[in-house]
Each structure stands twice: as structure tokens, then as C-alpha cells.
Amino acid sequence: MMRAVQVTGYHDKLQMSEVPDPTPSGPLDVVVKIGGAGVCRTDLHILEGQWAEKSQVQLPYTIGHENAGWVHAVGDAVTNVAVGDPVILHPLVTCGLCRACRFGDDVHCENSRFPGIDTDGGYADYLLTNARSVVKLDPSLEPAAVAALADAGLTAYHAAAKAARALHPGDFCVMIGAGGLGHIGVQVMRAISAATLVVVDRNPDALALAAEIGADQTVLADGDHVEKVLEITGGKGAEAVIDFVGEGGATAEGVAMLRRAGNYYVVGYGENISVPTIDIVSTEINIIGNLVGSYNDLVELMALAARGKVKLHTSTYALDDFQTAIDDLDHGRVRGRAILIP
């Protein structure tokens, strides 16, 4: 039997349970001993019941979708990793056979499972995944230090890499929010793009960190920030806006910071976007959704991490202290990402 932190009811507190250890039953199954599990704002949304209808998950179940550790057991057809290997887990367990997987777009796999969302996740001693989901870590990387890169980092990388493909030297990229995801997005953009990076946040400490890790300019969200961004961009707005907030008025401000034919990348969520269709047509702006990144995105992100280009700022908690970690996240007391360590 192993420990597992489970959702037993929506709007109730998480409960520590004893559940059977997972074992490989399929030929490509991989059981991972958890070395670190990231605590994400989505976990708070799960407890609020926001994902109940979408995930259709049966309660009780174990949450935790940002996971890294060591291979503990494998099915008899697994050849890409061996017992003892340090690994980070792509958050989805994918089939490899559908059209999306064949394109390398495994985020949209037609037969996927999502540990921590619609099946048992990593707030536990062990987790069941498959061979398609494990990325072997460089020996310089510790599972607990990179665990949150599996979702928060991967989501930030996916959006930043998508934006970077359309950006050129001399262009402007504005990032709204420099917290758990945003501080990773800043490092990624600095590593892969020559665009001028402007970071907007209401927290002066977050802006100080952003400047330290690669932002060219920072703007305090104090009510005049849209005008300040327009001033920085010569009155034209930015070619790309990456919004890691997506609520509290950020979407209207993000669109207002955009230049003609610019791209607005939505990552954070919580409010509706309201833009007159004539404004979209007349300026040819694009509003682009961003989910988590693909397996290949995770491989690329791990390459940046191994080279020291992306570092995760973490606060660690013992697995038994899960409630403290959840409360700290909920009340804004976590710098970077909270990590549970069994």
C-alpha cells in the first residue's frame, strides 16, 4: 500500500489515503516512484469542482499533474527507459496511433488519459504512466527541481515557442504575469528569441525577478500600464502578447497592447474575452489558445534546463504537508512553484 492525496468530494479538503501500489499491466506501462509533484492552481480549480463536468472523473481519485521521479517498474515492451532512470513525465498518457499523435500533436490525442485530472495523479508515492510519456533526465537535473516543468513549464514553453516562431529581432513581445508560469516563460523567450521582452505584473517582486532572469523592460500594472507598453512600442503595440493571467481585466488590456496583425496568446484563464468583431477584422489580430505542450516541447524544455537556460524557483513541502502547500498557494505565499516531495 502507498500514500495518496485524494479528492473525496468537491468543495471539501483533500484527504490522505492508503491505496494499492500501481503495477504495470500493459506492455508499455511505466510505474514511477515520485520524486516531486508540483502544486498547481488547476488543483485549486479541481477542488472547486470546475473540472468535474469536463473530466468526468470518478471520486475519490489522486490529483497531481506535474510529476518527476525515478522509473520503478516497466512493462515487458518498454525499451526507452530502465528501472532507476530519473524521468520527468509528460502530463498526458497518449496512444501514439491516432492522427494527432502521428502529427506529434499528442496534446490532442483522441485516446489520452490525464493523470491528476481524469485519472490518478502524482500526489502519491508512485504513479502509473506509459513509455510514451517519460522523458529521461540529464544527470545534472534532480526530479524535485524540475517536476513543475512538466506542466507549468511545459505550458509556458509551448506558448513562448509558438510566439517565438513568428517573432523577429526588433519585434516586441509583452508577457502579462511573471509568476509560476510567467517566470519560466521569460527564461524560455530569452533563450530562443531575439525579440524585445516587456514583462507586466502588479507585483514589484515578480518584476524584479523578471528583470534578473531576462526581461528587457518591466512595467508595473498600476493602472497606466497599457499606456506605458504603447509608449515603449512606439505607439504601435506589440507583435506578440502572451497572457499568463487571463482574468481580472487582463484580456482587455492584453488586446489593447497588441499592434495591427499581432498575436494574442491566451494561457491563463478565468474570464471571457470580449472584442468587437469589427476590431478583429479591421486590425487582423489573432487570438490563440494555448494548452500544455507536446512531448517534443518537453524534450526541448529539458534541453534548455540541462544547459542552465531555464531554472525553476521552487518551495518544497513534504507530501504529508499537502494542505499547507495548497493553503500557501491559495493565499499567494508561494514564490515560484510549490513542490510536494514524498
Rank of each mutant, 00 (worst) to 15 (best):
A144D: 12
I192R: 04
I117D: 07
V266G: 05
G96V: 06
V5R: 03
W70Q: 15
N296Y: 03
S315Y: 13
V266K: 02
M1Y: 14
Q217T: 07
A144R: 11
L209N: 09
A238W: 00
I117S: 05
E48S: 14
H11T: 15
I63Q: 08
Q58W: 12
A305I: 01
D216V: 04
T8C: 15
M2P: 15
T155R: 03
A68W: 03
G36V: 02
I326Q: 11
G182H: 08
C95K: 11
D328C: 13
L298Y: 02
P115L: 11
V245I: 08
G237K: 01
I34R: 00
I192H: 02
K309V: 11
A256T: 03
D321M: 15
V241Q: 01
I278R: 15
H225A: 03
K162Y: 04
E142M: 15
A306F: 09
L14V: 08
Y264M: 03
G153P: 04
Q15H: 07
A148G: 08
G9F: 15
I176Q: 02
G116Q: 11
G223K: 12
V299Q: 04
D125T: 10
P115Y: 04
A150E: 05
A252V: 05
D21F: 12
A238H: 00
T316F: 15
I280D: 09
V267D: 02
V57W: 13
S294M: 02
P342K: 03
G104V: 07
P24G: 08
G268E: 00
G121K: 09
L167A: 08
Q56T: 08
A100L: 11
A152F: 00
G75I: 09
P22A: 04
A210Y: 11
L197Q: 02
L141M: 12
N263A: 06
Y317L: 05
A164E: 05
P115E: 08
V226T: 04
V198W: 01
T218W: 05
L59W: 13
G180Q: 03
V135L: 09
A261L: 06
N290L: 04
A161L: 07
H90P: 10
L89F: 09
F244G: 01
M257L: 06
P139L: 14
W51I: 12
A325V: 11
G234F: 00
D76Q: 15
I184H: 06
S294R: 03
I326D: 10
D12Y: 14
G38A: 13
A325S: 11
R190E: 06
N286W: 01
A156T: 01
A221S: 07
K236T: 11
I213W: 07
R41E: 13
G268K: 01
F172P: 04
A159Y: 00
T251K: 10
V292F: 04
S193Y: 03
Y126G: 07
A166E: 12
G268N: 01
H90F: 12
V93M: 10
V241S: 03
D12G: 09
D21V: 14
W51Q: 12
T62G: 01
K136R: 14
G35T: 02
R3G: 12
H313G: 10
A303P: 10
T23A: 15
L128N: 08
D21K: 15
W51P: 11
E142P: 14
H225Q: 06
V255E: 01
D125P: 12
R307V: 07
I288Y: 01
E18M: 14
V266R: 03
T119L: 08
V74L: 13
P60A: 05
N130G: 05
K136P: 06
A252P: 09
E66G: 10
